[in-house]
Design a binder for these strands. Structure first.
Lengths: 242, 242
DNA sequence: ACCTGAACACCGTTCAAGT
DNA sequence: ACCTGAACACCGTTCAAGT
């Protein structure tokens, strides 16, 4: 086994064997995975073509062989995230409201795991297979529950708009946390400031706002999300037919 | 009156009187008004500190004497837009649902008049007097209608989120219109493409989506906005107390 | 076919220097 | 106090040139 001794110096005219292949070849998947890593660590603002390229030890121009522009990269990132959403079991006509809520909650949780990724879905209609599988399932649940064809067709659009918008708003508030501070602490402090501001308003001009400060400030992001979901789905149940 | 003859040449050692004061002095109001003009004409993307400065025939650094950063400029722009919202008359307990809807529709119309300005309100909690006057009035309407304190407190947040998110989504779709094309024509074409795409999906994997294409694509932006508003306010009426 | 360096036309913000 | 030019550290995308 002496010939395996890697420590023995090579004669100068022999170039050393290839160094570790540190740079795997570029590919669309690799670019998307790298962009998602940056998104999760630093938010969508940090995802620039230049930054992704730098992470892959290349120049920004190299990415354009695999992705036609930044817009397409963002779409691919969203579709990848949509793949994390768990689809519930068979639609159960008796439990359609609870099943619909459960799916919405999962969409919400998955979106929030990836910072402000929802900026993408709020700006474009997602058309990838993973995203379509989620809306297909939502349609199935609503139709099983007896929601009319037209109400289901519109409701799916409205429900996704709501879930996306809420996740977007929340993630933006989180990402304003200065680095090094715990997000919870910063959020508590931020809402404390808003509360003081509301309390300091002139009560003659803003009587309801001042009077209702406790109710306006009550409840965390999850509680508020749940309340809006409740409103939408309760409203939708008026459109069921036997 | 011979001394008034402005055409008579001045001797070279006399500098001519000040030219037209083409450049009014900078001020926060002027900066905000200029930024709003650019927003209305070209969308929020075109509103850069450099572009606003250029429009005012100065350099970007000059703006920072009147506005602490771009974020503040955007907030001021939103507050200005919020001033265009018409507040309805006295809250009428019998008509609270219709009054609330009417106010929401007006907010929606005003927001849509100013392109993607809602990106600002979706990212920040508006705290200017104009914006607060709108939410104060909404609280008054809901309380007059007998909506419980906590439901009203949460509902206002959810309703604004919905109205803002819908206006944002719509305005982004509009602003993708290539310059020179009528927006209506472009939108019709765009939705035609989405429709064909949905129709071309494999029916075994996406049976509901394929089957429900007519319902999914039916209705314009206003109709869809109205449907979501209907859901929210119908849901809210379950939280009234005498 | 894929990759690259360099360039183009942009950003927001800061800062020292001017008036 | 207000304004300014220049600079800093960034953007997305294109293009000719390389392999």
């Amino acid at each position: 086994m002496r010939s395996d001794d890697g420590e023995f110096p090579l004669p100068p005219w022999r170039t050393p064997p290839k160094r570790k292949p540190v740079k795997p070849p570029l590919s669309q998947d690799l670019i998307v995975a790298t962009a998602l890593r940056i998104l999760d660590a630093e938010g969508l603002e940090a995802v620039s073509m230049r930054r992704v390229a730098q992470e892959l030890e290349t120049g920004p121009a190299s990415l354009y062989a695999h992705v036609s522009n930044k817009e397409e990269l963002l779409d691919l990132m969203f579709e990848e995230v949509a793949g994390e959403i768990t689809l519930p079991g068979e639609p159960d006509p008796e439990r359609w409201q609870e099943q619909l809520k459960e799916l919405c909650r999962d969409v919400w949780r998955v979106l929030l795991r990836h910072r402000d990724i929802t900026r993408v879905s709020l700006a474009n209609i997602p058309t990838g297979p993973n995203a379509l599988a989620v809306s297909e399932r939502m349609l199935a649940i609503m139709r099983a529950g007896g929601v009319s064809r037209q109400a289901a067709g519109w409701a799916i659009d409205r429900i996704f708009l709501y879930v996306n918008a809420d996740a977007y708003e929340l993630s933006l508030q989180f990402s304003k946390t200065p680095p090094g501070v715990e997000p919870e602490k910063h959020m508590a402090q931020f809402f404390g400031q808003i509360r003081s501001f509301f309390e300091s308003l002139p009560p003659d001009r803003f009587p309801y706002t001042v009077d209702m400060v406790p109710e306006l400030m009550n409840g965390d992001g999850e509680r508020r999300f749940e309340f809006g979901l409740e409103l939408l789905i309760a409203g939708l149940s008026a459109f069921t037919e036997p």
